[in-house]
Amino acid sequence: MTASLTATVLGTPDPPALADFYRELLGWVEMTREPGWVRLRAPEQERPGLSFQLEKDHVPPVWPQDPDSQQMQAHLDIQVDDLDREVERAVELGATIESHQPQPDGVRVMRDPHGHLFCLYIPGY
């Protein structure tokens, strides 16, 4: 058997709203929108995709980690050509910039509108 990673799924209290954020950020297309589930993919390929499922009790992780708080389970790394421009665009779409930035250059740790962490980075980082 050959195994292939086909998607990453983020839990959120509002799948359509979070999908809309990532659709705009990534320039991806929506493939499925059902109650409690939305799936996106890149325009030129079927997989991997990014999906959003309803989790009414979603609790965003604490960053940087704290042993007594919700831990980050995963985050998305998104490569960009112009870090400053894409950070500004992500903020305009509803993201926030984290105060803790472990790398001084080339990478920005951010949160999407529902609290999931993601990094924007330029090639070489």
Rank of each mutant, 00 (worst) to 15 (best):
E30H: 00
K56C: 00
A19L: 11
V38R: 08
R39C: 07
Q103C: 02
P61G: 09
Q71F: 02
R85M: 02
V29T: 14
R85V: 14
Q70D: 05
E92V: 03
L76V: 07
V62N: 05
Y125C: 04
L50N: 13
T32I: 15
D82L: 00
A7L: 11
M31F: 05
D66A: 07
H116K: 03
R85N: 08
R41T: 12
H116M: 07
V91M: 07
G27Q: 08
E86Q: 09
I97P: 03
D14C: 04
H114W: 07
A42V: 05
T8M: 12
P60Q: 08
A90K: 03
R41K: 13
L83K: 04
M31N: 13
M72Y: 03
A42E: 15
C119P: 02
V29K: 13
D82W: 01
V38M: 11
G27K: 07
D84Y: 01
G36V: 06
Q65E: 15
Y22I: 06
D20I: 01
R23L: 12
P60S: 13
M72L: 15
A95H: 10
G115Y: 15
Y121R: 00
D82F: 03
A95Y: 07
G106I: 04
D112F: 04
E88D: 15
W28G: 10
D14R: 03
H100S: 13
Q73M: 10
D66T: 05
E92C: 01
E30L: 03
Y22A: 07
H58K: 01
V80A: 02
V38N: 04
P43I: 13
E24D: 14
A95W: 10
M1P: 07
L40N: 12
A7T: 10
T96Q: 13
E86G: 00
V80I: 01
P67A: 11
P15V: 03
E44R: 02
M31Y: 06
V9F: 13
D68Q: 11
V9Y: 03
Q45I: 08
T96N: 06
M72P: 00
S51L: 08
A19D: 10
R23E: 15
P48A: 13
H100K: 05
L40D: 15
M72C: 12
P35G: 02
L26Y: 11
H100T: 09
S99N: 00
P123V: 08
H75Q: 11
P123G: 14
G36E: 14
M110Q: 04
Q71Y: 03
V107E: 13
S4A: 11
I122P: 00
G27N: 09
L117K: 06
Q73E: 15
G115W: 10
P102D: 12
P48H: 14
T96H: 02
Q73D: 12
